[in-house]
Write a protein that binds this DNA or RNA. Structure first.
Length: 853
RNA sequence: CGGCGCGUGGUGGAAUUGGUAUACACAACAGACUUAAAAUCUGUCCCGCUUUGCGGUUGCGAGUUCGAGUCUCGCCGCGCCGACCA
């Protein structure tokens, strides 16, 4: 008996699928469409285990849906712009484009060897001019609709690399590459007006019921809607007014100061004639953005000398501070401080000896002796010391203050969001050029659609820090499309999140001459099932949701939610190993008989650490390439599906992959040992079969029902468990009597169909061996025979006072009375009851009988 | 500090959504086959006891219920995310 040879078999079927265009999608109006998509990879060089996991999950769904009769769209492409290509250019002198395309080549080959059912004719790469020209065309339209604009914003500036850094690239106040101290700088940046849709992005989350609750909550928190009041404070000694946003207007009588952000316009104005204030503001701006520094940062203020008039009394004057904890980017950039009822304000007030006036009386004991001193009371209570508000609840007081201030035009109810507009400018080379020119005469002029794409130049130099586009001898010099005078190109490129905000649309019409083909959009979009990592739960998904709304406004699409269903899968983890020299790869260590770890090369002891997400920096990675070579794609796929549910992290283990390998071999052995019988005969199941034969048939059909349900709900680990049980039943089946061959044949054919989406190569090979000539990939999913699903008898639990005492077999249609009678007649139960009195008997049909004493 | 999630054997995890806790595997141990190994097959495998049985067990403690891994409250522990959002 030959062992299953994955290398040979897998290649055979991959060639077959490709040659016969099994997975090339085209719309057939007779069928319902199903678009399944996994997040496309960044072409970093080689695929990693995370890719294997997410693409396996998507492939199971795609193959399953195809067998259920859907017109499936399952494409793949490349998120191909981004920093690593530039780093390769800097470090190894390889042009970014060349590096990227060669990585794509390698990874495409690797993905193909995994046997994924992609329609490769629709492949796209975001770095291809065919792709980014369309992105540029869409940008021009967003610009025309004021959904894109240029604005001065504060950014993290790395003075050594001469580039803007994202928050996550600033580590402890220093640039992640250069190590230079990061400055806050005001730079002119391109922005997308995502805030225009803040409310809709929030409201629509309610309709995304096929998304995980956690992702919806994260998005809602990110958008961060708060309702409050804008209050205008007149100044006693200045002509300006200060507009303040608050969610606690009820505490207005407790106000003891006003604080404005260091970069508030009024602060800048005052600092012009006040060097001390200017230097205070500069200190604030230098403050790093890292968590640690913010955590430690003391609340600091600078008294401007201005006095604000309390809107109610008009008499009371509140000092106006510039304070480092007030953010210009939220609300109005100014607050009123009510120390008694806000933790930040009480810290500030304690430092600067400002009054602390209680206006909300707690119902219980406050201050709570258990709490540290200087703790603000933020709970519920009734208003005191607050004039006309006294005695009201917080909510009543909020409404009363809003009403009164609105009546006198000193305030207005206002909703504000934590969400900021999306800054899309990057001072980088390897990205989509932003298609505008800067003309001295005409200002910012979009590049006309006929002149697109604005191509990235190939001949760029990385010998200096900063953006090579900016230094290119010729590229940025051009003429104004408007006046034909000399003009300069925009040298910023797009954030790569822009590229990934619409790629899923382009798959539907990869070669269309305009951004999107309306017909294709109608046929395929939105994505029915999106699969990807939880790390993109906020930004990528939110940006895509915004982009669809923007495209809808431009008339390209008619929907606004891009992803109907979302499956967020967990990470692939592995133990970490290290010794004095640093981290070690799993293949560099081995386990001793005592269970300790040591180095393979010199036997020195090695520390093993906890299991963490696979990452190159900790070297706890396993290369899919070597796994593929040793075990083949099907085994790797099975490992990813068994044991753990998709949304949870999985631990990569040697024994786990061995277990998957053994199962693949076991299934193959069953197929090998089986002599195919006459096809016609197998269809007829005789009526005089033995109970064992009927049992196998029932098991087969129950497995179909269970596995179908499990796949529909993405519980692949359960599906695998069910398939393993059926496999064990077939292996153990020794009957030869009437109907035995037919039953075994039916079980085997079913098994092959059920493993089809998970182990497609093995399944095809077995299908062929069972005597079928057509590809399994084109077969339909089995339907259970419902007459075999129900059983005449069921095992019921009999409890006494909720404690299991025995089990009894009963007919499924037995009446409750009869079931109760039989249970009470059972000798075990009788013995337990003894001569105690029965208070009550609860009968749950086909489940349990509980005798209450 | 806040938000969200999780806690079931040595391990990954099941549990018909309030109804027989530990399915399916991994590891371990014992046995069969073998000159031997690998592979394969069979058996044991939550804990305790006075072992045909009895008692206990889903992080800990309470509650609701005829019945709780599942619902409620309070602790403890772990993980992820956010971070001065007025």
């Amino acid at each position: 008996m030959a062992r299953y040879n994955p290398a040979k078999t897998e290649q055979k079927w991959q060639e077959y699928w490709s040659k016969n265009e099994i997975f090339v999608s085209s719309r057939d109006d007779g069928k319902e469409k199903y678009y399944v998509l996994e997040m496309f990879p960044y072409p970093s060089g080689r695929i990693h285990m995370g890719h294997v996991r997410v693409y396996t999950l998507g492939d199971v769904i795609a193959r399953y849906k195809k067998s259920k009769g859907f017109d499936v769209l399952h494409p793949m492409g490349w998120d191909a712009f981004g920093m690593p290509a530039e780093n390769a250019a800097v470090e190894h002198g390889i042009p970014a484009a060349e590096w990227t395309w060669s990585n794509i080549e390698t990874m495409r080959h690797q993905l193909k060897s995994m046997g994924f059912s992609y329609d490769w004719t629709r492949e796209i790469a975001t770095c291809s001019p065919d792709y980014y020209r369309q992105e540029q065309a869409m940008f021009v339209e967003l610009l025309a609709r004021d959904l894109a604009y240029k604005k001065e914003t504060w950014v993290n500036w790395d003075p050594v690399d001469e580039t803007v850094l994202a928050n996550e690239q600033v580590i402890d106040g220093r640039g992640w590459r250069s190590g230079a101290l990061i400055e806050r700088r005001l730079l002119s940046q391109w922005m997308f007006r995502i805030t225009a849709y803040a409310q809709d992005l929030l409201d629509s989350l309610d309709n995304l019921d096929e998304w995980p609750e956690s992702v919806r909550t994260m998005q809602a928190n990110w958008i961060g809607r708060s309702e409050g009041l804008k209050i205008e404070f007149d100044l006693a000694n200045h002509s300006e007014t200060i507009s303040v946003f608050t969610t606690r207007p009820d505490t207005l009588y407790g106000a003891s100061f006003i604080a404005i952000a260091p970069n508030h316009p009024l602060a800048s104005q005052l600092a012009e004639n006040n060097p001390t204030m200017l230097s205070f503001i500069e200190t604030c701006n230098r403050l790093g953005t890292s968590e640690v520094e913010l955590e430690k940062a003391e609340k600091l203020g600078f008294d401007t000398g201005l006095k604000a008039k309390h809107p109610f009394s008009g008499q009371e004057e509140l000092p106006v501070f510039v304070a480092n904890f007030v953010l210009m980017s939220y609300g109005t950039g100014a607050i009123f401080g009510c120390p008694a009822h806000d933790q930040r304000d009480i810290e500030f007030a304690s430092k600067y000896k400002l009054p602390i006036k209680t206006v909300v009386a707690p119902s219980g004991d406050f201050p709570d002796p258990a709490l540290p001193p200087h703790t603000a009371f933020t709970g519920d209570g009734l208003m005191i010391n607050s004039g006309f508000l006294d005695g009201m609840t917080i909510d009543q007081a909020k409404a009363a203050v809003a009403e009164k201030l609105e009546a006198t035009n000193q305030g207005k109810r206002h909703v504000t969001y934590r969400l900021r507009d999306w800054g899309v400018s990057r001072q980088r080379y390897w990205g989509c050029p932003i298609p505008v020119v800067h003309c001295d005469q005409c200002g910012i002029v979009p590049v006309p659609k006929g002149s697109l794409p604005v191509l990235l130049p190939d001949d760029v130099a990385f010998d200096q820090p900063g953006n090579p586009l900016d230094r290119h001898p010729t590229w940025k010099h051009t003429t104004c499309p408007n006046c034909s005078g000399a003009a300069e190109r925009e040298t910023d490129t797009f954030d790569t999140f822009v590229d990934s905000s619409w790629y899923f649309c382009r798959y539907a019409c990869p070669e269309f001459s305009m951004p999107l083909d309306p017909e294709a959009m109608k046929s395929w979009l939105p994505v029915d099932q999106y699969v990807g990592g939880i790390e993109h739960a906020i930004l990528h998904l939110l940006y895509s949701r915004f982009f669809m709304r923007a495209l809808k406004e431009c008339g390209y699409v008619s929907f606004k939610e891009p992803f109907t269903g979302l499956l967020a899968q967990g990470m692939v983890c592995h133990e970490t190993y290290r010794d004095d020299s640093g981290w070690l790869y799993p293949e560099e260590v081995e386990q001793t008989e005592a269970g300790n770890w040591q180095r393979r090369d010199n036997g020195q002891p090695v520390q093993s650490g906890r299991s963490e997400s696979m990452s190159k920096s900790k070297k706890n990675v396993v290369d899919p390439g070597s796994i593929l070579k040793t075990y083949g794609a099907d085994t790797a796929r099975l490992f990813m599906l068994s044991d753990s549910p998709p949304e949870r992290d999985i631990e990569w283990t040697e024994s786990g992959i061995e277990g998957a390998w053994k199962f693949v071999q076991k299934v193959w052995r069953i197929a090998e040992s089986y002599e195919p019988i006459e096809r016609q005969a197998s269809k007829q199941h005789p009526k005089d079969s033995s109970p064992q034969v009927i049992q196998l048939r029932k098991h087969t059909h129950q497995t179909i029902a269970a596995v179908t349900k499990d796949i529909e709900s993405f519980r692949f680990n359960r599906a695998v468990a069910g398939i393993r049980q059926l496999t064990n039943a077939i292996a153990a089946f020794q009957e030869n009597g009437s109907g035995a061959q037919q039953a075994k044949c039916e079980a085997l054919e079913t098994l092959v169909k059920l493993i089809g989406p998970m182990l497609p190569h093995l399944a095809e090979e077995m299908w062929e061996r069972l005597g079928f000539s057509a590809s399994l990939a084109q077969e339909s999913w089995p339907l259970p025979d419902t007459s075999l699903l129900s059983s005449q008898t069921v095992t019921m639990a009999v409890q006494i006072n909720g404690k299991l005492r025995t089990t009894l077999n009963m007919a499924t249609d037995i009446t409750s009375d009869l079931a109760q009678e039989r249970a009470l007649a059972d000798p075990v139960i009788k013995a337990h009851i003894g001569n105690r009195e029965i208070k009550k008997v609860v009968v749950v049909p086909n489940r349990v009988i509980n005798v209450v004493l």
